[in-house]
Every structure is written in structure tokens, then in C-alpha cells.
Design a protein around this nucleic acid. Sequence first.
DNA 1: TTGTTGATTGGACAATGTCCAATATACCGC
DNA 2: GCGGTATATTGGACATTGTCCAATCAACAA
Lengths: 152, 152
Amino acid sequence: MDAPRPERLTDAALADALRRGGLRLTRPRRAVHAALRDLGGHRSADEVHAALAAAGTRVSRMTVYNALADLLRAGVVQRADAGPGRALFEAGAAWHHHLLCRTCGGIEDVPCVRGRRPCLSLPAAFGRAEEAQVIFRGVCRRCLEGERRKRR
Amino acid sequence: MDAPRPERLTDAALADALRRGGLRLTRPRRAVHAALRDLGGHRSADEVHAALAAAGTRVSRMTVYNALADLLRAGVVQRADAGPGRALFEAGAAWHHHLLCRTCGGIEDVPCVRGRRPCLSLPAAFGRAEEAQVIFRGVCRRCLEGERRKRR
DNA sequence: TTGTTGATTGGACAATGTCCAATATACCGC
DNA sequence: GCGGTATATTGGACATTGTCCAATCAACAA
């Protein structure tokens, strides 16, 4: 149940991923990617911005938003669907889903049985699905064990 | 592919659903439910608020937010997961999923093969899933046909 | 090294959702 | 039907999130 460690991209690999989309490897983009990877888990743009500021890296808020969108297009960052509200990002490229715990409010990664998109098919009558993100809502393992312990 | 028409709840049925959760049937709650049902599709709280205002029904914005949350708990309204941003609601209780079209930006309902929650199971090692919402991203039928027509 | 093109900056702005105390109303028992 | 009481509504202030813009800066190809 440990969070999968996001792979550590070399600068060259990051530059490659960006350039495939006609994007440059800039200092802010490198910093945003590293911050997201080092923070781990599911983070909002402003969390990344705050982490960079705390580390003494001055980057404008707009740039963080832009960089995350660019890294997303480049495929080295993913958006974690977790319902409405602010957008959450995470480093890494492995396709997976999420469990939202209604007890602790946490988000757990759930590996995708297929591991690549789209993992579920859509009846052709509706159109073409390029990806299928599943949001499980319920109670995470940790909280479930907490409940059980209390009940005794 | 027509949108399923949301069932028309009688006041008694609506009151029943609310009271099961210790909630009262109030004029604003009735108005919000009717507005959402009559608008059809996937609507934000402020869209419902605007529709009510346009129809001459004065209800405070806060009340619309509260009413939608209450109707959601009562099970007569659902939240349509459509990624980050504002929350979208729709009338009705039948469990289903959504296809987000990246061409036109629209949201299509996709019936759930099981029709009730949870339609997908979660490996027990992760916890208990009470519901599983699938977000398909791709191209809707209408846009797919548009593409095909242009290519000729 | 230099020029060109794309990226960053920072401030202003819009949209969405939440908090609060005062007031109004649904609904229970009579 | 008539209160009494717990619940709901109100409206304004506020926080958070994300976007827009023109001026400046920097990546990278030649």
C-alpha cells in the first residue's frame, strides 16, 4: 500500500518529453517538476508554489499554473481526478485511479488493472474514449481498521 | 442517445426523501430541485441560482448551495464528476457515468452497466468502495461524426 | 555570440464556495 | 387551527482558485 515512488527523470528525459510537444526545458519547469515529485502525493498548484517559495525558489504563481499544464501535456505529470474544487497534480506517468476516503478526506492511489489507457471501454454509440478515470469513494484501509478497533 | 428524462418527483416523495435524513421540505429546496430538473443536464449552483432569479424566485445564493448539498444527501440529486472546477449537479437518482468531449467540451451521460453503486469493485487491500464514478475523456459521438465528414 | 521565438512576471480580475449572526419558517403537539 | 421550537434562509464579507495582459527575460538554433 506504499505510494509508488515517482520515477526520477533525468534532465535529458524531461527535456525530451517537453520537446516532443514543442516546449523548452526552462528553469521554472524543472523546478516545478522536481517540487511536485519531492512533495509526493496529490498537490495543488498553490501548494507547489508555496513549496518553491519556502525553498527560496522565486517563481510567479502564473508560471506554476503554466508549468503544470505544460508538464501535463508532456505526460510527465498527471491530474488526479478527485471531484470538483482545485486541481490536483502528481508526478509520474503510470495510469492509475483514486480512492477518496470520506472519513479522513485522504486520497489513495489505486493501481489500474490494465495499467494503460483507456482501461475501460465505452460503447461505440457514445463516442471514443481515450481514457477512463475511476473515482472510488468510500473508506480507506486505515480508517476501516480504525472503525473495527473502536467497535470492539 | 437522448438524455434520460429525470423522473418527476411528487412533493410527497421529495418530502419523504428529505425527511429520511432529518430534513424539512422547504420552499427553496422544492424550487431548487424543480429548477435543476427543468433545466436538465449538468448545472452549477450559480446556474441554478440564475435560473431561479430569472423566473422571479428570490433565493439567496447560499441557500442554493445548501439546498443542493441537502438534496444530494437525500439522494434526489447527483453530483456529476467532471474534473476540477465548479461542482455540477443533475436531477435524478439512476447511477451513471460521464463522457467529457475534448472537442466540444460537452458532458454526455453514459449509462452504468450495473445501474447501481458500486458498479466496480475495489481490491479489499485498499478499503471499501461505496461508489465508483467513471470519467471517460475522449470525443463524443456528434463530434466524431463531424470529424469523419470533414476528412472526406 | 546573437537573434528569434517562446516563457516568465506581477498585478488586476472573475468565478466559486464558505462563514456568520439575525431573521423567518416548517412542522410538532395541543 | 395555534403556538413553540428547532431548523432553514438571508445577505454581505471573505478566502481560494484560476485566468488575462503587456512588458521583460531566457532558451536554443544558426
